[in-house]
Nucleic acid binder design. Sequence first.
DNA 1: TTGTATACCTCGGCATGCGAGGTATAGTTG
DNA 2: CAACTATACCTCGCATGCCGAGGTATACAA
Lengths: 112, 112
Amino acid sequence: MSDKNPALMSGIPELVVLRLLAEREMYGYEAARALKVVSAGALSFGEGVLYPALHAMEARGLLRSREQLAGGRTRIYYRITPKGRRRLERLTSGWRRVSEGVERILGASSHE
Amino acid sequence: MSDKNPALMSGIPELVVLRLLAEREMYGYEAARALKVVSAGALSFGEGVLYPALHAMEARGLLRSREQLAGGRTRIYYRITPKGRRRLERLTSGWRRVSEGVERILGASSHE
DNA sequence: TTGTATACCTCGGCATGCGAGGTATAGTTG
DNA sequence: CAACTATACCTCGCATGCCGAGGTATACAA
């Protein structure tokens, strides 16, 4: 009865965030909006996904952060590390493999 | 340190199994091998994934099963239901949306 | 009789997505 | 001034779901 398919994305937050940060330094809130915009609305991660993901990635050495004040509010900018870039490459090729595998099955029909 | 990225697939078992069964009736063990073959090795789900998934889908009315003996062994054939087909359509379009969203982000670069 | 292939199954851990809720500042609008 | 919205960060805990490990049983070959 669940109208929503809650899980069709796993590992995807890590992949796309790394990809965004590979382009340029960003702070969390900014990344959340960018994700939505660049994916044309297809992807949208709540803060309950994004912030824990950023913290986990920093703890694993994939990102480094620095604080910066902007009009009374604190922004925490994240920058990708060399290790993060290597991780991004692995995740990207993993994604391609899975994606192509799924496409092969979706496109497979014995009688078309 | 985890060399493996254990999760880049979620909801995918349900999607691809439904897609296979939309083509023709199959039993579990058969589906497992077909999945691997058709996806050209990119996808491969252990029995700890497959059987629970089949049971869950049957419980939700997406599949119906029948037993059949084949050389002393029991095979349980699963057939997709109309409800299962509707589910397949929703999952497929969900997959496309996510997939295109990811591609957009992977392909996004400001300085290429 | 040991091993391999077929064919089914369950249990438990681990990771993760994600909503819900919380804090705080700045600016706008009635 | 009070209320609201936007910005910007955060944590907790539930639910889902992947997946390895282990278990049962038959048939056949080495």
